[in-house]
Design a protein around this nucleic acid. Structure first.
Lengths: 330, 330
DNA sequence: CTGAAAGCGCTAACAG
DNA sequence: CTGTTAGCGCTTTCAG
């Protein structure tokens, strides 16, 4: 038979379609014996419920989406991929289906939401406010991750940038460094800004002034970072330690150091941020501030579920702690 | 009004629901003027078609899945993430929705397929034959990527492992290397085997015998690779070049070289495989065999579409060419 | 605990 | 080109 339906099962098992439906969706509402009869018939017919029909009748889909708001790389960005894994794990375990897309296709996602297929979306990274409001106006639940948006009412999950920077700087100070420079990333609005500001703040707390030779902006590209680092290291009073706004930038600093024949960590200490997979690939391995992306993803999913379940008092912002991973580079 | 339906639009625009439906799904079948009326009414009501109902009526969902068959990391594996991006691009451009999941949750995917929500799936990596047959028995279209399964009738997309190895080895030979060793990856059945065999073959073609000191197995983990490389480099007649079965393994070899004070590429040449993002992070940058993962993903989607469209004569195996990217390490 | 029946919103013949 | 109408497969009151 072509695609058995609930009717076929109903007929074969001798109970009504309503009961068959219950047997699958709310087993506890069906008497043991009846239930077994239904399952047996289903087995024989190789029946399994049609989720589309179910969604149609229930007027809900149990589908959510993860939209990575980032230009080029998306899933290729380890950071967002890790968050994704966190979301995925929790989502599947809660019987939610996950749709993933990137900024390039965000219209698609909005469209999907519009067509009532998606009940909630997790926005990764630099999400435009208009996207959030558009989504919310369609009554889809929205959660932000690794970004903050002022003035909008929605939960967001971020890592403790400030504390991460503090951990890195304090560690370097404890190792005797005083001329600590930061290679700050341009481009990533929220995170970059947070890390940069935290750096200035922590340095100030320790009475260290950050002048022009103490901070340099660069794009998050190894070579550009290497270039910027080289300039920093060419200064008369060159820094003895460099904090990269992320691991790629830190890798650039290491490249620059190597090209100049500087030894790590003796001549220069380098600390990265994100604790991505490249850290251990380098020799010496890169000391970096670990961010628990997977956890962030899981928390997103928790917030989204709370939203979908209509819970009250959902935390507006959730901060995930960071941890400095000390390795050979500093 | 709560969620306007096609009836509301029909009423407001004064045409039948069938016409409204056509106006959205097959605009060319509706006269210009009528169409405009429909769109206007829809606009006023803020109507947009309900995809669930549509799927229900059409008996098709336009949904496909990408299942990464790999233990731990999944999307975190750059290789599979890149394939994913390729699939994603093509899928969205063809109005297919993409579901992504990992091996851990493959039951979920099968379940999703069973519930008639998914029409095709792309299996990434080491997919078990039983999964394929199970899926096929549910009449879902299946395509394999970066893997081959003997005896099963389905399209697969792979990269030209053999040619990639040849490119790497030939290059090393051209640079005067004769004692070339391979650090072969254990664990990844298909790909690892292909690369390993290709190595033996190419070396043989050039009259070079590969003895115990010419190849070493190791897990695809930097430190384990470094360890294995160290052993290789400690041999009396140590290799002057090492080909890693992938970039991580190659990075391990570089670590070992550095620890022994060997200079790259003077004392040791290292070539990787995959051309992943770590290549440029290293200094000197890693020479590696580039695999066009994105293209592989796109091709998967093409094959899957062909399958779903019921086309005949779909290529059984599609091979994507590789290209050696020469950088500083060799 | 179980059954009858009315939808859920849209599509696809078929007829005009 | 447009309208009528019968479903698509399941859930959910409401009765019993």
């Amino acid at each position: 038979m072509e695609n058995p339906t609930i009717y076929d099962v109903s007929r074969l098992s001798g109970v009504s379609t309503a009961t068959v439906s219950r047997a699958f969706s709310n087993p506890e509402q069906v008497r043991e014996g009846t239930r077994r009869k239904v399952y047996e018939a289903a087995e024989v017919l190789r029946y399994s419920p049609n989720a589309i029909a179910r969604a149609m009748a229930r007027q809900r889909t149990d589908k959510i989406a993860y939209l990575i708001c980032k230009k080029d790389a998306t899933l290729l960005d380890e950071f967002y991929a890790a968050i994704c894994e966190g979301i995925m794990g929790k989502a599947y375990r809660s019987d939610y289906q996950l749709l993933i897309s990137n900024a390039e296709d965000w219209r698609v996602t909005v469209g999907t939401a519009q067509s009532k297929q998606i009940e909630g979306v997790i926005l990764g990274g630099n999400a435009p406010a208009e996207l959030v409001t558009e989504l919310q106006s369609q009554k889809v639940a929205v959660v932000l991750v690794n970004h903050r948006l002022a003035g909008l009412e929605l939960p967001c999950v971020i890592s403790d940038e400030r504390e991460g920077v503090r951990q890195a700087v304090t560690y370097l100070l404890s190792r005797g460094h005083r001329r600590i420079a930061m290679l700050a990333g341009r481009l990533q609005p929220y995170v970059a800004g947070a890390r940069y500001n935290a750096f200035l703040e922590v340095m100030a707390e320790h009475g260290l002034r950050v002048d022009a030779s103490g901070v340099k902006m660069c794009n998050p590209d190894v070579e550009q970072a290497a270039q910027a680092a080289a300039e920093l290291l060419a200064l008369p009073d060159r820094p003895t330690a460099i904090l990269g706004a992320n691991d790629v930038i830190a890798a650039g600093a290491i490249k620059a150091a190597r090209r100049m024949g500087l030894r790590l960590p003796e001549d220069l200490a380098v600390v990265g941020f994100d604790d991505s997979s490249i850290c251990t690939m380098l020799e010496p391995a890169l000391t970096s501030v670990h961010i628990d992306c997977r956890r962030m993803g899981e928390l997103c999913m928790e917030r989204l579920k709370a939203l979908l379940d209509g819970e009250e008092d959902i935390p507006r912002v959730t901060v995930v702690p960071t941890e400095l991973k000390v390795r050979g580079s500093a």
